[in-house]
Structure formats: C-alpha cells, structure tokens
C-alpha cells in the first residue's frame, strides 16, 4: 500500500512542479487583464490553502483571515520605504505568526467555540487599534505605499507562496504533527488521552497559517498604492477565503485550489453586474455551498473518480 502511494506522490509532485513552471510563464504572454486576474486568483489560492492548512484537519473555523491579510499589508506601509523588500516580507510573516500565536494562546487551550468567537471580531479589533494609533500618533489614517515592484513580480511571489502553502500542507500531512491534527479533528478527547499536546499542535499550525496569510497581504499591498484600515481589514476577505476553501473542500490539500478559480470568476461577474448587491448574492452563494456541497467540489470529484475506477476494475 505504501509503495504505490509514494509513486503516486512522485507523479503528483512532478506534475505540480511542471504546472507551476508553466503558470510562471504567464506574464510573458500577457501583462494586462489576464495577469491581473491571475494575481487575484493566486492570492486567494495562497490564502485559502493557508486557511485550510489549519481549519481543514482541525475543524476549527477561522474567521480572522482579514486580520492577518491587513496586518501584512500594514507592515509594508510602515517599513517599505526604509527596509529592503525581503526584510519587509520577513517582518510581515513574523507579525502574522505572532498575531496567530496570541490568538491561539488565548483560545486554543479551550473549546473550538472560543476560537471562532475570538477570530470573528479580530479583524474589526485590529482595525480599531490601527485607526486609533494612526489618529493619535501619525496624524492621518491613510497611507500611500511607494514600492517599485512590477505586477509580474507580485504574481511570481504569490505563486511562490502558493507553492510554499501546498508544500507545507503536504509535509505536515506526512509528519507527526499532521497525524496529531487529524486525530484532534476526529475527536479531541481521544487525542488528549493518547498523549497529544493538542494546544501546542493547534497553536503551531495556526501560526504557520497566519504567517502565510500575512505574507499574501504584504505581497498584495503594493497593488493598493493607498491603504487605510477600512480597505486593509475588509471583512469580505475573511468571508471569501472561507467560502472558497469550503467550495473546493477543506479536507484535501488541492481542495481550495479547485474552489478558488470558479469562485473568483463568479465574484468578478457578480461584482461587475450587481455592484450594489455583492454582499447579498455572495451570502446566498455561501449558504448554497454550506447546504449542498458540504464535502466541497474535491469531495465530489474524488467520489466520482472512485466510482469510475470501480467500474473499470
């Protein structure tokens, strides 16, 4: 059983590397509409993958994506003019990880409900704090971001983050941590009784996920050119990431990937045609996903694939 699995994995890794190389060539073909769309898709793939990294195996629904995304963007606005870009990125990752660490330490020792509630208001809380800080100490709420970085470079960095997210998910899945998390997701009491330090495993993984999302925020920040708390901590981001990951299926590593692409296209369509009803329509789409695709598209596909194989065998 184990050996053929490994062969399949080798094929999967080789195929994803080839796909990544192919995708990386996109800016050479087009640098207008398609590149912009690809940047949106890549940023959401990276965030949804990072979200599912934690929320998929543990069943702890994180509603705080916007908090990490916005904090990453704010690190850029604060440091980009003085520090070199790699340093800015490291700082964003550290801020994201610390924020996740603090959230995790406060709530993840307790039941999942506390975590959900804490994450629910987190983006709003940080938005208030940033607004307060800026009005008190810097005088103006908004900030301009002057970073000379091309759209293609942003795209490549996002692809890199997608690759890191997918690789991290794959590596964690094979590690003791991944096994521990699956046990926690199935039954936390059993996990605790079999000697798993459940709080530590959860906090660790949430920090990785938070750092990745903050990095996406940092890479995307130059696209905004002007940021203010209202834009950076937009609750829509949390909402969209959850819906995309669920649509694709949070239990599988490639699930969010499958969910993001149709959803981004749908969103562009809705936002273009019904600009005043985006919230309402997305809410309805979200409910449809929760009710009718509980396992996600990847769950469907896997079931269909198994059926197909069953017939041919």
């Amino acid at each position: 059983m184990i050996f053929p699995m490994q062969r399949r994995e080798v094929i999967a890794v080789a195929a994803s590397m080839a796909a990544l190389a192919l995708l990386a060539g996109l800016p050479l073909a087009d640098d207008g509409f398609w590149l912009a769309l690809a940047i949106t898709i890549a940023s959401y793939v990276a965030m949804a993958t990072a979200w599912a990294l934690f929320s998929g195996p543990t069943n702890y629904v994180s509603l705080a994506t916007a908090a990490f995304f916005g904090s990453g963007a704010y690190v850029v606005s604060a440091l980009a003019e003085t520090a070199p870009w790699p340093v800015v990125l490291v700082a964003a990752a550290v801020v994201g990880a610390l924020l996740a660490l603090a959230t995790g330490l406060a709530t993840l020792r307790l039941s999942g409900m506390y975590f959900v509630i804490f994450s629910f208001g987190l983006a709003e809380l940080i938005r208030q704090l940033v607004t307060y800080y800026q009005t008190q100490f810097t005088g103006s709420v908004g900030r301009y971001i002057f970073v000379t970085i091309s759209a293609a470079e942003i795209y490549w960095q996002l692809l890199g983050l997608c690759a890191i997210g997918l690789f991290a998910g794959w590596a964690i899945n094979r590690s003791r941590l991944g096994f521990a998390l699956r046990v926690i997701g199935d039954d936390e009491t059993v996990a605790a009784h079999s000697g798993i330090d459940t709080a530590r495993a959860k906090v660790l993984l949430f920090s990785i996920s938070g750092a990745l999302i903050a990095l996406v925020g940092a890479v995307m920040a130059p696209r905004f050119t002007y940021i203010e708390p209202q834009i950076a901590y937009n609750p829509m981001v949390s909402f969209q990431v959850v819906i995309m990951a669920l649509l694709g299926g949070a239990k599988r590593l490639w699930g969010p990937l499958v969910g993001v692409i149709p959803f981004v296209l749908l969103y562009e369509w809705i936002a273009g045609r019904f600009p005043n009803h985006t919230h309402l329509l997305l809410g309805l789409v979200f409910l449809l996903v929760v009710y009718f695709v509980p396992q996600g598209v990847s769950g469907w596909l896997e079931k269909a694939w198994r059926k197909l194989q069953g017939k041919s065998a």
Partner: peptide, 9 residues
C-alpha cells in the same frame, strides 16, 4: 455566517 452577509447585504 452566510446569513449575516445576506441580511447585511
């Protein structure tokens, strides 16, 4: 959570 966005929308 979905309902929240529907009503808010």
């Amino acid at each position: 959570f979905g309902l929240l966005f529907v009503i808010e929308g």
